[in-house]
Design a protein around this nucleic acid. Structure first.
Lengths: 189, 189
DNA sequence: TTCGGCATGTAACTCGTTACATGATTTT
DNA sequence: AAAATCATGTAACGAGTTACATGCCGAA
């Protein structure tokens, strides 16, 4: 499906970048829904070059270091636009190891379950608080629909909602476990 | 990380199954968070056999057809239990092609965006309605915490909440696009 | 008797991660 | 001077998908 291809084209359509800079982009908003390491990015850039979708200029940084700054071509922009318009069926639901674990959790005692849930809860709350902090960069609310910031904003909002949903579910599960625990302890007393 | 290994062990810990039946399990609740095709399952079963975590009996169906019914061993149960207790850090956030598309959507006209969002919305609503239908199988509410049905129930609940969050986000985005569209049309008039 | 589902396997390929490899530049 | 970061690449491996390959069983 070559999705990385379009992630890279989309980024280069924002501004010319080096492979290294493309990698850095995944540290920000976009990283919540896509990611790639440099070991995947450099070969992809080479492919895009062969396909004529990008070109590069060599830039000298300092005395020796050569940086390849890639720019999207007109052909690249056309391919990107075509991909953006694609109305595709829903993807397979993504895998989730923690939910797999909880699926089999009837084999664990209630205390262990609560401990695992608590640990996940803390981590999700931490992640959510970072995302909320990032959201403070948009005090003006929704950015104009024809700017890059619009994309940044809506995926950030999605990431925040995803964390909120994750937290809500974990709390629900903890509620079930704690209720069962109290019922059991009531019996033993 | 060998996660499939534990998915298979967990299923066999519920009841002995053939490779084919393991594949079928992913059509139900568990399939919302894990999946594997038979081409992955059969080699995995062979590995588990070599590791002494499962055994199998040959069962004759009809006159000729041989079915291998796998059973988890005590060693397998121990490994499963050990894995279930593991408190691991949050996974990388999963990739999402639609959100990647929306991240770059400032390059699309508002009508195209609304069209894409509408299409996703319909599909998510369809999926949600199927999940809600499945939930009707639990009229008694939360099943007992020490039964297989507890796992079935909580992952189903998670799947429903995930769809609800997806729908909420899409509606929000559509709201932004429609507001921008009306503002633009107001200008042209 | 034919079609859909049951049943088991392998092979080729894509995608992604970790590790290997190297070296320059900037900051402390 | 050392450490962190910038910068570019390749190799080996693991996970997962699609396609190849075969054949039985039960129902219409």
């Amino acid at each position: 499906m070559r999705t990385l291809k379009f992630a890279v084209l989309g980024l280069l359509n924002r501004r010319p970048m080096t492979g290294y800079e493309i990698g850095k982009e995944f540290d920000y908003e976009l990283g919540q829904f896509w990611n790639a390491k440099h070991s995947q990015i450099y070969p992809e850039l080479k492919k895009l070059l062969d396909e004529g979708l990008v070109v590069f200029d060599v830039e000298i940084s300092g005395d020796i270091l050569e940086k390849k700054r890639y720019t999207i071509t007109e052909k690249g922009q056309l391919e990107l636009l075509k991909w953006l318009h694609k109305d595709e069926p829903l993807e397979k639901t993504p895998k989730d190891i923690f939910r797999l674990r909880m699926y089999f959790s009837n084999n664990l005692d209630l205390e262990s379950r609560i401990h695992l849930l608590e640990s996940q809860l803390i981590q999700h709350e931490k992640r959510l608080s970072i995302l909320n902090k990032t959201m403070e960069q948009y005090p003006e609310g929704v950015p104009p629909h024809d700017t890059d910031r619009f994309g940044d904003f809506i995926v950030l909002e999605s990431a925040i909602m995803r964390e909120e949903y994750a937290i809500e579910w974990i709390k629900k599960c903890m509620g079930y476990c704690k209720a069962a625990l109290e019922k059991e302890q009531g019996k033993t007393k």
